[in-house]
Write a protein that binds this DNA or RNA. Structure first.
Lengths: 346, 346
DNA sequence: GTAACGGACTGAACCGGATCTCTATGGTGT
DNA sequence: ACACCATAGAGATCCGGTTCAGTCCGTTAC
């Protein structure tokens, strides 16, 4: 391994001079500077990253606390991670993976061991037991998702309430008066996952505000459950002309399930999804969707953490506004929907 | 931050004694040992992980080089990562994320900077340009997937050729004489991704060996492409009674697409998937599948890397045998399949 | 009786790099 | 010509933990 001393010897200067050339914390003559640079290049020297003087407690590593449990939005997660890694590299930082199943103890271990400068905590639930610990911890952290109260934390999240409401508003604007909602698997609600609850709340509140009939249902991840839920929904509300889907697994099947229930998309039932744009575009017909802004979340999360490491105090909660992309699943009504019912009802 | 000196003071011994208690490299009297342990507990001391004496070049961090590009098997990847993190923790090691788009330069940076002890390289292609570098690098690495020749490397992979063959054998054993194959998006083949090519090769070779008619098609990730491919396949080979699907996106849609082409699953067409078990079970009917052993790959990869870090020389290529789980999509033939054609042909 | 031995522990050097302090040098102003 | 200052470089020190070279003391062997 090439050390700073080797470089100094090669360049005929003191080790400290090499250090100053690298950090730029002192003025060094152009001549010496270029000579040192030349030696660095010649010897292929790379500063020993893990040891930045030991005294400056910075490691330039961020702990990424991943959920790694079943039922996650996997594609969204990968896109988040990609964006986070890329953004972190811009701050010359790296991401260290930590599973959430060590939970609190894992966090404590990493925090005390000076292995990381801070944490990115994904998939935070409304009553997450890691939150009290994060508040205490000497290391800064940024949460993706937010607990019931964000005081004393830094959270970034999509405004899921607004997202749920946006779906209703879009459909109500198109004239729909009865809207269904297919949500995440029931286990996700039982876990009191913020995104699921808040979307549903936003949906319900907006439906009430707009005076449209609304029915929400939790749906499991398998095809038969989606089919059953769809049929149940159509049977219970034959006049339903629109559907909001917040369940990635269900999305691929919902068109054929609705057809099996005697409903065409978008002819009989308009559909809005809450999912990554990419997925919405793969469907047939392409679905109108409120996108899950995984990349933005990843980018903002790292930016916020970098700011905190820089001594700044960002606001406790950053909510990204939902953005709806209109596609073929919610066309303009040729005829008002409430008069265009087809298929059997029962 | 609590240092080893604090512990030593608290226990009334020298710092070096505390170090020896922790590392166990010298015999320490039971009395002193327990006193030091007590102080460690009382002060909540955690050894400063990044700095193991600076001289011992071990960092206990593994670089995880992720593909992070479009068209990956995302769910499989997450399960791989979960297993890898969990296994690494057992060796008291952590995983550092590295994107593959830094490619060779990122690898070199990390290798020289003594930030990681070794690498786990995912999604290795048959003519991967990172492979020559990995062979040179002073740091050990384990590849998931394997290039054309594994000499001088350590690779772990599912035996995709055997997997493709296993699908054919299963279907041929059930009496099928004409089998279709829906593969990954064409971009994946163009990229010369080992798993895609090898599966297809294994499929073709087995079909020839068993004397069954076979047709393979690359399929894009969106619903309409899957529908087009399915219809084209059925039109070109009306006598086709079985299908092998190696494309996660297509799996969710294949049943309804076959129905649209006038074929019932499994009545008219039996289907075998190559995908995670979890996904196969979510479908309706549940699909017979050769599982992608993401967890095993993750576990073995870390085990192999740990062995290499331990000075051992594992074999260059470890191929996991495919395992087929039979489900409802490949029932025993009530009547020989070739006589039970239904629907339109053209 | 004393030399040899070895177990238990300590003090100091060391790892690689950052940073503080000090000195040498050259240029400027008066 | 001399004080003064900015600049450039060298040397010492520090960070936290490991490890080497000793010190101390009790035990055993001749």
């Amino acid at each position: 391994m090439v050390t700073i001393a080797d470089v100094a010897r090669h360049a005929g200067v003191a080790p400290s001079t090499v250090s100053y050339v690298l950090t730029g914390k002192r003025s060094i003559s152009a001549d010496t500077k270029s000579r040192v640079r030349e030696s660095i290049r010649a010897l292929g020297y790379q500063p020993h990253v893990t040891d930045r003087g030991l005294s400056s407690s910075r490691t330039n590593v961020i702990g990424l606390v991943l959920p790694l449990r079943a039922g996650m939005h996997l594609s969204g997660m990968m896109r988040f991670v990609t964006a986070a890694v890329t953004t972190a590299r811009r701050y010359d930082m790296d991401l260290l993976l930590m599973t959430a199943d060590d939970g609190a103890s894992g966090l404590r271990r990493a925090a005390n061991s000076a292995q990381v400068d801070g944490f990115l905590v994904m998939d935070v639930e409304m009553d997450d037991d890691r939150v009290p610990l994060l508040r205490q911890l000497s290391k800064p952290s940024v949460l993706i998702g937010h607990p019931a109260t964000a005081r004393g934390l830094t959270c970034v999240d999509l405004d899921f309430e607004a997202a749920g409401a946006k779906c209703v508003d879009h459909l109500a604007d198109l004239g729909h008066r009865s809207i269904g909602f297919l949500g995440a698997p029931s286990a996700v609600y039982r876990r009191s996952t913020g995104s699921a609850h808040r979307t549903m709340n936003g949906f319900s509140a907006a439906a009430m505000r707009r005076g449209v009939a609304a029915t929400a249902l939790a749906v499991e991840d398998d095809h038969d459950s989606v089919l059953r839920a769809t049929k149940a929904l159509v049977r219970a509300h034959p006049s339903m002309t629109a559907l909001v889907v917040h369940n990635e697994a269900a999305l691929g099947w919902i068109t054929s399930c609705l057809r099996a229930a005697g409903r065409q998309v978008p002819g009989d039932v308009a559909v809005v999804a809450i999912c990554p744009d990419e997925l919405a575009e793969q469907l047939s017909p392409p679905f109108t969707s409120v996108r899950l802004p995984a990349e933005e979340l990843g980018r903002h999360a790292v930016d916020l953490l970098a700011a905190k490491l820089d001594g700044k105090q960002p606001p406790p909660l950053m909510l990204l506004p939902p953005r709806l992309s209109r596609r073929a699943s919610t066309p303009d009504p040729a005829v008002p929907h409430q008069h265009r019912r087809t298929g059997s009802s029962g």
